[in-house]
Simulated scan of single mutants.
Amino acid sequence: MMEAAIGDGGQRVSLHLTDQDQQALVLVLSHQPSPTPDDTVLPRLAELGASSCGTDSAPDGRRIWALLDL
C-alpha cells in the first residue's frame, strides 16, 4: 500500500490505523491529486489475506485501504 502511495509522486503519504471487533483497518493516503491508477495493489492485498480492500480518489489524493482480521 505504501509503495503504491509513494509511486503516486506526492511529497508525503499518511498512514492511518484503527481496530474494532477483532479487525484492523489500514488506510494510506497519497496526498497526490489525480494519481495514475495502479491495478496491481488490490489483488496483492487480497493475496495477503485482506477480508476487504479498496481504493478511490479524493481531492486530497488517492486512498488505499484494507480490512484485516486480527
Rank of each mutant, 00 (worst) to 15 (best):
R12G: 08
D39W: 09
L67V: 06
L45K: 14
A50P: 02
S34F: 06
A46M: 13
L67Q: 05
A24N: 11
D56C: 11
E47R: 10
L29P: 02
G49W: 02
A50D: 04
D38Q: 04
L27S: 06
L68N: 09
A24V: 11
P43M: 02
G61H: 00
A46E: 09
S51M: 09
A50Q: 01
S30M: 08
E3N: 15
V28K: 04
I64R: 05
P33V: 14
S52Y: 14
S14F: 02
A4D: 11
S52T: 07
M2C: 13
D60E: 13
S52G: 06
D8W: 01
V41F: 07
Q20C: 06
L48D: 05
P59A: 00
D39L: 13
S34N: 15
T36R: 13
S34E: 13
A46P: 01
A5V: 01
L29K: 06
Q22L: 13
E3P: 07
G7M: 04
D56W: 11
T40V: 06
D21C: 12
T36L: 10
S30T: 02
A58Q: 12
H31V: 00
S14M: 08
L67I: 02
P37V: 10
S57N: 07
R62G: 07
A66G: 07
L70N: 05
S51G: 14
G7R: 05
A5E: 01
V41A: 03
A58V: 14
L70T: 08
M2E: 15
